[in-house]
């Protein structure tokens, strides 16, 4: 057990190191990796809710809320500072998460999923309709923020954003892991298995779920801010329901019960998408669909379970050998 978790930790750090050096070897990979990690943060939000057995088909709305609020803030401040726009985007997402959460945590399963979808569609159409504020479907250009007052050229900014995103992915991944191991996180999976008992322990399932919901909104919002900054443009498409479906897709691809799975899934997804789009422009969705089908049929625990199983087999083998 401790041996395995020690191994897992080493593997995660090795992978992170691999990701960290990639852009120095292949500069073109930097933007791709930043986007993948940012998406991984958003997927992590979806994974938190999956612990409670709840699937949101609208969580891209928080990606859009993070991205747009940071953009508005940046434009109002004439660019603003990276730290300020990041915090602004996340705090706005938290506020929206709290308000929408109070409403949706009263529902479960298909109703929960569809209500989230409904909220995201309302937001999407608001972003499209109020074009004098939001730029409509053309979106808004994102101004490049300074860092602690220093203005940065594009290459430096992208480099900083990449390493910052990697650090956030590691740090927040670890914190979310801690949260899920804590009684509050364990209570999330208790919501899935028996709300009656939870209530009879004196615990409100809605409160437990609301905490998870706000955490997930914050993670999606943060991912959204970073995606906006990388792309230099925010459009309503960020919050489109297809994007929400994509987050769920990646969560299942990576392994819904696992923090590492969110990032592994996002990295694989972005790489497959980029290559498939370049080499098989017309059928890349089919390729991704096929991959998910294989995962669901043969490895329902996702990529992370595939890895976990092979590690277990390896250990079992070394142990049985005299």
């Amino acid at each position: 057990m401790t041996q395995l978790s020690w191994l897992h930790r080493t593997v995660i750090l090795a992978l992170a190191l691999g990701v960290a050096v990639m852009p120095t070897l292949y500069p073109w990979s930097q933007v791709l990796l930043t986007l993948a990690l940012a998406k991984g943060l958003a997927v992590l939000g979806v994974v938190v809710l999956l612990q409670a057995g709840q699937v949101s088909f609208g969580h891209a709305m928080f990606v859009a809320i993070g991205a747009y609020s940071a953009t508005f803030l940046g434009r109002a401040l004439g660019g603003g500072d990276l730290v300020v726009v990041l915090l602004g985007g996340v705090l706005t997402s938290v506020a929206f998460g709290l308000v929408i959460g109070v409403f949706v945590v009263r529902y479960r399963y298909i109703f929960f999923g569809m209500l989230n979808l409904a909220f995201s569609m309302v937001l999407f159409s608001l972003l499209e309709k109020f074009f004098h504020i939001t730029g409509g479907s053309d979106g808004l250009r994102v101004l490049r923020p300074t860092l602690f007052g220093q203005s940065l050229d594009r290459a430096t900014f992208e480099g900083i954003l990449f390493y910052l995103t990697l650090a956030l992915a590691l740090g927040l991944g670890w914190l979310v892991h801690r949260y899920l191991q804590s009684p509050l996180g364990q209570a999330l999976s208790a919501v899935k298995s028996n709300e009656t008992r939870l209530e009879y322990l004196g615990v409100s399932a809605r409160h437990v779920l609301l905490v998870g919901y706000v955490v997930s909104a914050a993670l999606c919002g943060l991912g959204g801010v970073i995606i906006g900054l990388v792309q230099g443009l925010v459009t309503p498409e960020l919050g489109y329901w297809v994007r929400s479906g994509e987050l769920v897709f990646i969560a299942i691809l990576g392994g819904a019960s696992n923090v590492t799975g969110a990032f592994a899934g996002a990295l694989v997804f972005e790489v497959v998408r980029t290559y498939a789009a370049a080499f098989a422009a017309n059928i890349w969705q089919m390729i991704l669909g096929g991959v998910l089908l294989l995962i669901v049929l043969f490895a329902p625990g996702g990529l992370i379970a595939l890895y976990g199983n092979s590690v277990k087999k390896l250990f079992a083998r070394t142990r049985t050998e005299p």
Binding site: L175, R178, Y179, Q181, S182, P183, L184, G185, Q186, A187, S189, A190, K192, S193, N194, T196, R197, L198, Y200, L201, G202, V203, V211
Partner: peptide, 29 residues
């Protein structure tokens, strides 16, 4: 009425946490 996907001890620990309100999210159960 039990948490079917948890171990017996984890069921008990969730109850203990509920009793003592041990909701610090960074403290392992």
């Amino acid at each position: 009425q039990l948490f079917l996907e948890h171990s017996v001890l984890d069921n008990m620990l969730i109850a203990a946490a509920a009793r003592t309100r041990a909701w610090n999210p960074f403290r392992a159960m």
